[in-house]
Design a protein around this nucleic acid. Structure first.
Length: 559
RNA sequence: UGAGGGUUAGCCAAGAGGUAAGGCACCUGGCUUUGAACCAGGCAUGCACGUGUUCGAAUCACGUACUCUCAGCCA
């Protein structure tokens, strides 16, 4: 890649070690990996880890990575998801080139291999129903027992399997099973189901098939067909590895891929299971799969996170085999690091309160230059305007300041960022006693620096916007969706840990005029407030809507 | 004693018999017109525990504890 992104130096991991050795020993001259999602939902940050591992390894070792849809269950899959998944992978910055595959494109070959197993006496048609099969399977501590149909003749199996394919039997009446070992301590080897009958249209191959292979019968063989060298999946598939290998050993496959497992990503303050994510959408707890609070790639993208930041995050968390919990703050820190570098600065007053500069003439205005980035003069300046009435943030004023507060107070002075030093002289309140307006004076000689005419240093610098020039916008502030670090853990319903304040909508925010009509893609730093970007769905010229991507680090608020 | 994994600092994580990388977090100090960023420094006499092998063990052996995964016609 040619990006100049910040990426933590890639540390070694067990997969890199394995690949290094395979390349060095000549076992492989180049590597082929794959990212194999089932198109049954939207991708989330956990998938991003897998994508970065698979595509990243291929990139770093000069190999290639395929995108393969593991579309073996038409009951759950949809075209919509296929498109959304492609888009997310591309958004993350990866390219499968010519190598887009579907497990369903291998259905005929898989079917022939099933027949091969039947002829070898290694597969049989099962007439038992699902409950009976379960009863025969045994338990974790007890062996299973053979099905009465286990010893059918090859001819009968061939006949029945052909009729299954022809659609002669209804769903659930028969399955094809591998004939392995009902007493195996590894349950996935107790005559696993290979094919089941599903009369449903398939998003990729239409209604060509009435029987569909299970994951186990499709995955390794698809890897072999595509010439995958390193088939990398998550740890829960580890117990399937002997089965994965059993098929490769017992079928005339064209290659011998190897499966390796890594620990899936667990992130704090969110849930990651597809079922729960879907429930949040269905119950209307979030606005959709792309709600900016969702851990989906669609949500993260809409929120304004950059792909570079997500990649840096995946690089930073590493790859291991031990169960781990990554704190969301690490993801947020990656976003800040990326945006600090690239985001132009601007000022926005989120909770406006008016400050009237009594010693500045009404109707007058003056143009000031503000740097777009304090450390990058090459990013240029922008014009802002100083006038008699300006907006400042309500949080930047305290009538009776708490200890350590160094913003504006009555009688106190503060520097307006890129502007003058102002002093607050009085407070105007309504009958209820709420502050409606502040009055103050400015020091005309204080344009440069933070020192007053008599040499004192002003402690606070605050952001502000000219009332005469400001544009009004809606700003959405997001917080974590859950108030518990592990809403998923324990017996309690995860929904009871929902954070009621996960979104706060402020509708009367005052922004610099330059933000009106700004490019939708540009991420800005609203100085002292965080990083923001327009909501791609809801923001338009008539109504500006900004999402807060992430706050700035705040050493003051922590105290 | 069903099988298979895992355990290195608060959170991740490198390490493959030669004396504990790195990142985040945290703490000091510096710099600063963002309480931001940045810079400098600090942060494991110890690698779940125990025993053994060895001149030498996070690395090897044995045992123990805790923890995760598997009993879908899901992936």
């Amino acid at each position: 890649m040619t990006t100049t992104e910040h990426v933590a130096p890639t540390t070694n991991n067990f997969l890199r070690t394995i690949i290094d050795e395979d390349l060095k020993s000549g076992k492989h001259s180049s590597i082929v990996t794959r990212f194999p999602p089932e198109p049954n939902g939207y991708l989330h940050i956990g998938h991003a880890k897998s994508i970065c591992i698979n595509f990243g390894l291929a990139r770093d070792f000069g190999g290639r990575c395929h995108l393969r849809f593991d579309d073996t269950n038409p009951a759950k899959e949809e075209l919509e998801y296929i498109e959304a998944i492609k888009e997310s992978v591309q958004w993350l910055g990866f390219d499968w080139g010519e190598h887009l595959y579907y497990a369903s494109d291998n259905f005929e070959q898989l079917y022939q291999w099933a027949i091969f197993l039947i002829k070898e006496g290694k597969a049989y048609v099962e007439d038992l129903n699902a409950d009976e099969i379960r009863a025969h399977r045994g338990t974790l501590t007890e062996p299973g027992t053979d099905s009465p149909y286990r010893n059918r003749s090859v001819e009968e199996n061939l006949d029945l399997f052909g009729r299954m394919r022809d659609g002669e039997f209804p769903d659930g009446t028969r399955v094809l099973r591998a004939r392995i070992d009902m007493a195996s301590p590894n349950i996935s080897l107790r005559d696993p189901v290979l094919y089941r009958i599903i009369h449903a249209p398939h998003p990729h191959v239409g209604d060509a098939w009435k029987i569909y292979p299970m994951y186990d019968f499709a995955h390794g063989q698809s890897d072999a067909i595509e010439g995958i060298t390193h088939s990398i999946c998550t740890l829960e598939f580890e117990s399937h590895k002997p089965l994965y290998e059993w098929f490769l050993d017992n079928l005339p496959v064209p290659a011998r891929p190897r499966q390796y497992e890594f620990a899936r990503l667990n992130l704090t303050y969110t849930v990651m299971s597809k079922r729960k994510l879907q429930e949040l959408v269905q119950l209307g707890i979030v606005s959709g799969w792309d709600d900016p609070r969702m851990p989906t790639l669609a949500g993260i993208k809409r929120r304004g996170y950059t792909a570079a930041a997500v990649r840096a995050f995946c690089e930073q968390i590493g790859v291991g085999r031990s169960d781990s919990w990554i704190d969301v703050s690490i993801l947020e820190e990656c976003v800040r690091t990326d945006l600090n570098d690239t985001a132009p600065r601007t000022m926005a007053v989120l909770r406006p309160i008016k400050l009237v500069i009594d010693n500045y003439p009404a109707g007058q205005s003056e143009e000031l230059q503000a740097a777009n980035h304090p450390q990058k003069p090459e990013m240029g300046n922008r014009s802002i305007y100083f006038t008699r009435e300006i907006w400042i943030d309500a949080d930047d004023f305290m009538e009776t300041p708490s200890k350590g507060f160094h913003r504006l107070t009555v009688g106190g002075e503060v520097k307006l960022r890129a502007g003058y030093i102002v002093k607050c002289t009085s407070v105007v309140k309504d009958e209820q006693g709420t502050i409606v307006e502040l009055h103050g004076e400015y020091d005309p000689a204080s344009r440069e620096g933070i020192h007053t005419a008599d040499g004192r240093k002003v402690k606070g610098v605050i952001h502000w916007v000219s009332a005469a020039h400001a544009v009004t916008a809606e700003v959405r502030l997001f917080d974590r969706l859950f108030s518990s670090a592990n809403p998923d853990r324990g017996a309690a319903d995860y929904k009871q840990f929902l954070n009621p304040g996960s979104v706060e909508t402020l509708s009367e925010c005052k922004l610099e005029a330059g933000l009106n009509g700004a490019d939708l893609e540009t991420r800005y730093q609203f100085e002292r407030m965080g990083y923001f970007r327009q909501d791609p769905n809801d923001s338009h010229s008539g109504k500006l809507v900004f999402n807060r991507i992430v706050t700035l680090r705040d050493a003051w608020i922590k105290k």
